[in-house]
């Protein structure tokens, strides 16, 4: 990722809850801990978070409940006003936007999916999905036509006259997804979209979501408390604890090199071979003599397991998608990962 201009960029963002939090924040110096802020009677929901999200990336924010991940995403969409720092969207400081400009931004650039769907109970599927279009004043006909498009996209054709309460949880969330896509947003926020669903449906929705993402290629901020889900979906994962980001990196790097003990607790139980790709273990060739077929840099060690066990080579050449030689994969390290050896 050769640092294109970030779509969303936040610089030391803070969010404190409590009486007169702004004033209290202005008295803070240095980097106070979560505990010391709490003793003062405030909750630090977001603590000094700095993140850049480049165009087209899917950033998954992972944390347990109360870690501040939902608050962070609400700061990015300015559903909540931040206490300190800056959030830029497409180069605009959204904290400085007037209400009208903010509404314009949401009407044209942002979509959001909610954990408990946030559907309007008195509107049909069609009217729920057309709601953002109605808000920006589009006429009935165009509204309907666009809504039908997204209904088809999320696979709800034939249900457009149903009311939310007549749908299953999975279907309701499809409506939520369709609504957030109706305005063709550039930025897509998803706040634990699948947490309220049962495990089988969740899996199905994740696949559906990956399909949509491949189709649409949006910039995505995805919130979850489920580490497996994060690993499945993310380009990068930001792990949060007590309002601060503990580590923000590619899934395989997090699994291989957890930055803190807290992160290590999550990675401990993970079958690393399924996460780590050849590129993560890759070393420079440095003149070593490599023979035989190359492995793909995006293949996981688990994909390569049979080869790694059976092929006697000490190291395998690693090639990119275009076939160019990128480096080599030492066999011993691959076996270590496969057998769950060292971290």
């Amino acid at each position: 990722m050769s640092a294109p201009e970030p779509v969303i960029s936040c610089k030391s963002v803070w969010k404190l809850f409590g009486p007169n939090a702004d004033h209290y924040f202005s008295t803070l110096k240095g980097a106070p801990s979560f505990q010391s802020i709490r003793e003062a009677g405030y909750i630090a929901a977001v603590r000094d978070v700095t993140l850049d999200i480049p165009r087209g990336e899917m950033l998954v924010i992972m944390g347990l409940s109360g870690s501040g991940k939902s608050t962070l995403v609400r700061c990015l969409s300015r559903l909540i006003d931040i206490t300190g720092g800056e959030v830029h969207v497409d180069g605009q400081d959204i904290g400085a936007l007037k209400e009208k400009e903010l509404i314009e931004l949401r009407r044209n650039k942002m979509g959001m999916v909610f954990q408990s769907f946030g559907l309007l109970p008195h509107r049909t599927v069609l009217d729920n999905i057309a709601f953002p279009l109605e808000m920006r004043g589009q006429d009935r006909h165009t509204r309907r036509a666009r809504a039908m498009e997204v209904i088809e996209l999320v696979g709800l054709s034939g249900r457009e006259d149903y009311f939310p309460r007549e749908l299953s949880g999975g279907q309701q969330q499809r409506v939520g997804i369709a609504r957030s896509l109706a305005i063709e947003p550039d930025i897509w926020f998803l706040d634990e979209p699948f947490s309220a669903l049962d495990p089988l449906i969740r899996r199905e929705m994740q696949d559906e979501f990956l399909r949509l993402q491949r189709l649409l290629g949006k910039t995505i901020v995805f919130i979850t408390h489920d580490f497996d889900e994060a690993l499945r979906l993310a380009d990068r994962i930001a792990i949060m604890k007590d309002g601060a980001v503990e580590q923000c990196d590619r899934p395989d790097r997090i699994v291989m090199n957890p930055a803190t003990k807290y992160v290590a607790k999550f990675t401990h139980e993970i079958d690393k071979a399924r996460v780590v790709r050849a590129s993560a273990l890759m070393q420079p060739v440095n003149g070593a003599a490599l023979t035989g077929d190359a492995v793909g840099s995006q293949q996981t060690i688990h994909d390569l397991a049979r080869l790694i066990i059976n092929d006697p080579r000490e190291a395998f050449p690693v090639a990119g998608d275009d076939g160019a030689l990128l480096g080599m994969l030492p066999r011993q390290e691959a076996i270590d990962v496969l057998l769950g050896g060292h971290a």
Partner: peptide, 13 residues
Amino acid sequence: DEVIESGKMSGAT
């Protein structure tokens, strides 16, 4: 809250 937030994110005044 979520219903209101969804309204806000839909660009409602």
